[in-house]
């Protein structure tokens, strides 16, 4: 009895000490003198950018950087430029952003960053003439080529195909189209009959696609060179109930709906760019720069075609959910 009493008392005291100790522990100061990196993504509400933010955050944790991810509710170059400016004035130590369609203001702001001594890394799409540290991202030309191979394989090398891009002024869209054309050109049985601009706006896209399907009745395949259109087309195919079952669609980027469509066989394949790796490597490049090393001006991340058979190759980083600043 006495032993029990004594041990109970001892336990009581020990737990008290631990509890009070944990209170103290909660107030430990974490060094906030880490260099600050800001990711300014073109767009926030997309898995592609989410993965990139995850990559940046993870790299920040691994390499001891303070990271911040800024995104926008829709693609808006002016807002993006303002965010970059804000980051420059805030004296951050590094900026990661994506190249936009041709814009003087964008190039200027990048110059301003260079003058302020802040390295800027472009991801996803490059702007060749802009002042930047380097480009890390998809070889869009290669991506187009891969998409071409997929269309050829899907259609058997015969038939009319269409390409849906967001904006032909966008560097990456252009490169993808070129790559695609370059592959198709080797197969005389296939012709590109139409290139549609959808502007990554769902309403415009749906109209364009409906129009396209109505105008080009003997369409054998569609290459969706930007993220949204593939999902829209798949939805249309499903709604048409068998009318367009022979239509082969190759998408771009990865998303839940795309994965589901691939599983159901409506989407033939999608071009997967590892945005997580882009983000991670961008931070790595910034670290190397700060350490005085030189980084290659252009470095490409993996691009591959995801079909039913190799779905497991997708980088599984969904659980991370890096915090966004959305403007």
């Amino acid at each position: 009895m006495r032993k029990v009493m004594v041990s109970a008392l001892a336990f009581f005291i020990v737990t008290n000490v631990i509890l009070f100790g944990s209170m103290e522990g909660a107030e430990k100061i974490e060094d906030m003198g880490k260099p600050r990196i800001t990711l300014i993504a073109a767009f926030a509400n997309e898995a592609y950018w989410g993965s990139m933010a995850n990559g940046v955050t993870k790299a920040g944790e691994d390499l001891e950087f303070s990271t911040k991810c800024i995104g926008f509710t829709k693609i808006d170059v002016e807002k993006q430029i303002e965010a970059i400016k804000s980051a420059i004035y805030a004296k951050t130590d590094g900026i990661i952003t994506s190249g936009t369609k041709k814009s003087e203001a964008f190039n200027e702001v990048l110059k301003e960053a260079k003058d302020a001594g802040i390295p800027v890394i472009l991801v996803d799409s490059d702007v060749e003439e802009a002042e930047k540290l380097c480009y890390i991202g998809t070889d869009n030309y290669e991506a187009g080529e891969i998409a071409g191979e997929d269309i050829v394989a899907a259609t058997g090398g015969i038939g009319n195909v269409a390409v849906i891009v967001s904006n032909l002024e966008a560097e990456n869209q252009k490169e993808r189209l070129e790559g695609f054309q370059n592959t198709i050109k080797n197969y005389p049985g296939i012709q590109i009959v139409k290139v549609v601009e959808g502007n990554s706006d769902v309403r415009i896209l749906n109209e364009c696609i409906s129009e396209l399907l109505e105008e080009e009745e003997d369409l054998a395949g569609v290459f969706c060179a930007e993220g949204y259109s593939a999902t829209s087309i798949c939805q249309l195919i499903k709604n048409a109930k068998g009318e367009y079952d022979d239509l082969k669609v190759v998408g771009f980027g990865i998303s839940h709906s795309k994965q589901k469509n691939i599983e159901e066989g409506i989407l033939y394949s999608t071009i997967y760019q590892d945005s997580y790796e882009m983000g991670y490597r961008a931070v790595e490049a910034l670290k190397e720069t700060m350490e005085g090393k030189t980084v290659p001006e252009v470095s490409y991340t993996d691009t591959k075609s995801i079909k039913k058979e190799n779905m497991e190759e997708i980088n599984a980083d969904e659980g991370m959910g890096a915090p966004w600043h959305i403007y």
Binding site: E27, K28, I29, E30, M32, R36, T38, S66, T67, K68, S86, A87, Y89, A90, K91, T92, P323, H325
Partner: peptide
């Protein structure tokens, strides 16, 4: 503030902005 949070990062940015200002 001692907490290691998003706020901390943002206020640091604000501080940078104020310095520029």
């Amino acid at each position: 503030r001692k907490e290691n949070t998003v706020f901390r990062r943002d206020i640091t940015d604000v501080k940078g902005l104020i310095q520029t200002y």
